[in-house]
């Protein structure tokens, strides 16, 4: 395995981390927790060299999240602290806060997926997927293999049919639609007959006679097990704290102060350690690289 840092861990460990981040992101509703998560996820993305991707997609993410932050106070008038009136409708502090918290939740999930796309590559995802749903995974694998093949075939069909005057790019919209569908139909018949041959060759090689096996380069080593245990323990502690009401800002009927209590600080630290776990691996990787260059 050449992927270093967090991506070098076993796929299951990475998957549990991302699932946990989503879970905590959706369950915890406290501005302090959410701001910390956002900061940690941003730091992780920068360490994973996703700064440019982040800069490109952040405006869109802010737009999506911002919509929630704006819409909620305009439509919800629950709460005691009235900030001001807009068109005779009270804008309450609670509704503004709730909208902002929802925006941070959505942002956290979207940011997490930027990192997820880097770490959980298709083969890692399919490795886990095939453990749960083998037949569906095989189906998905074959679909994945067919997509680029069919895309090439589609271009070939396009070129050949253009010489007959069947073209998707010229003519009236109806003409284009008809031509496009004709091309798709040719692709369909060609590919289905081809799929029959693929199926026959699979059968000839003994598909279905025994359990299907595949080679994957992932081994659960001691570091993976230790990380997995730490992640699980932190997640469980975080969830246990959530049941105590920590990490939740009560807004109704009466808003509680935003400041955290002593025990809540400990809970906060545990949650932040969980969310920040990959940063440890990424910084260690960076440090190693730097020190190896220095000594060389």
């Amino acid at each position: 395995m050449n992927a270093g840092g967090f991506a070098g861990l076993h796929p299951l460990v990475c998957f549990i981390y991302y699932a946990g981040v989503i879970l905590l992101g959706l369950m915890l509703a406290h501005p302090v927790y959410q701001l910390a998560s956002l900061a940690l996820l941003t730091a992780l993305l920068l360490l994973q060299r996703q700064g440019r991707t982040l800069a490109r997609s952040l405006p869109y993410y802010l737009l999506v999240g911002g919509l929630f932050a704006i819409v909620n106070p305009l439509l919800s008038h629950r709460g005691r602290h009235i900030l001001f009136y807009m068109m005779d409708q009270p804008i309450t502090l609670e509704a503004v806060l709730y909208g902002a918290m929802m925006m941070m939740t959505i942002l956290a999930v979207l940011l997490m997926f930027v990192s997820y796309r880097v770490v959980m590559t298709t083969d890692k995802f399919m490795y886990l997927f095939s453990a749960v749903l083998p037949q569906t995974a095989l189906h998905a694998w074959m679909t994945l293999r067919f997509i680029p093949l069919f895309a090439r075939r589609f271009r070939q069909i396009e070129l050949i049919q253009r010489s007959r005057g069947i073209d998707m790019r010229t003519g009236s919209p109806v003409r284009r639609l008809k031509n496009g569908a004709l091309l798709l139909r040719i692709l369909m018949t060609w590919s289905l007959e081809d799929a029959m041959r693929t199926g026959d060759s699979m059968k000839a090689r003994g598909y279905g006679t025994a359990k299907r096996t595949a080679y994957y380069p992932y081994r659960m080593d001691r570091r993976d097990r230790a990380t997995l245990a730490a992640l699980c323990a932190l997640l469980l502690l975080s969830l246990a704290g959530w049941r105590e009401g920590w990490g939740l800002l009560t807004l109704f009927p009466r808003m509680e102060p935003i400041r955290l209590g002593t025990l809540e600080w400990i809970h906060f630290a545990l949650t932040a350690t969980f969310v920040g776990m990959p940063i440890l691996f990424e910084t260690k990787e960076r440090y190693r690289w730097k020190s190896s260059r220095r000594s060389a």
Partner: peptide, 16 residues
């Protein structure tokens, strides 16, 4: 196997 291959081809055409 033929059926799986065919379902995969259908899904691939849909995805494409």
């Amino acid at each position: 196997p033929r059926e799986i291959a065919m379902l995969a081809a259908l899904a691939a055409v849909a995805a494409l």
